[in-house]
Amino acid sequence: MVWTWRYEGADGAVLTPEGGAEEFTSQGDAESWVGEEWKRLLDDGVERVVLLEDDTEIYPMSLREA
């Protein structure tokens, strides 16, 4: 299993980060990484991320505070 994040802009368009998408061996590693990187992602124009396990969507998450 590979865990990744899909990055989306405000208009819902899928964005590709510089250097490509990070891959993780566990859900916890993926969640920890986005917890550390969310401000940089916002600065790069990412508004929302979607956690993927292989090709299965697990959950979406806004990077903006509710």
Rank of each mutant, 00 (worst) to 15 (best):
A30R: 04
V50C: 09
S32G: 10
L42Q: 06
A10C: 00
V49Y: 00
E23D: 08
R6W: 08
E18P: 13
M1N: 12
E53G: 12
T16E: 14
T25L: 02
E53L: 15
A10H: 04
V49G: 00
T16M: 13
E37I: 03
E53N: 13
R40P: 00
L15Q: 09
Y59P: 06
G12W: 10
D29W: 05
E57S: 09
D54G: 14
A30C: 12
Y59H: 12
E31K: 07
E31H: 05
E22K: 14
G20I: 07
W33F: 09
G12D: 05
K39T: 03
R6G: 09
L15V: 11
L63D: 02
L15T: 11
L42I: 02
T56C: 01
S26A: 10
V46D: 02
K39I: 06
G28T: 07
D29T: 09
R40K: 02
V50L: 11
A10W: 03
A21R: 11
P60W: 14
W5R: 05
V50I: 15
W3Q: 06
E65F: 10
S32W: 09
A30E: 03
D54S: 15
M61T: 00
K39V: 01
S62G: 00
D54L: 14
E8G: 04
A66M: 00
E31Y: 04
R40Q: 05
E57N: 00
V46T: 06
E18D: 13
W5H: 09
E36W: 07
E31L: 07
E36H: 08
I58N: 00
P60C: 14
G35W: 00
E22F: 08
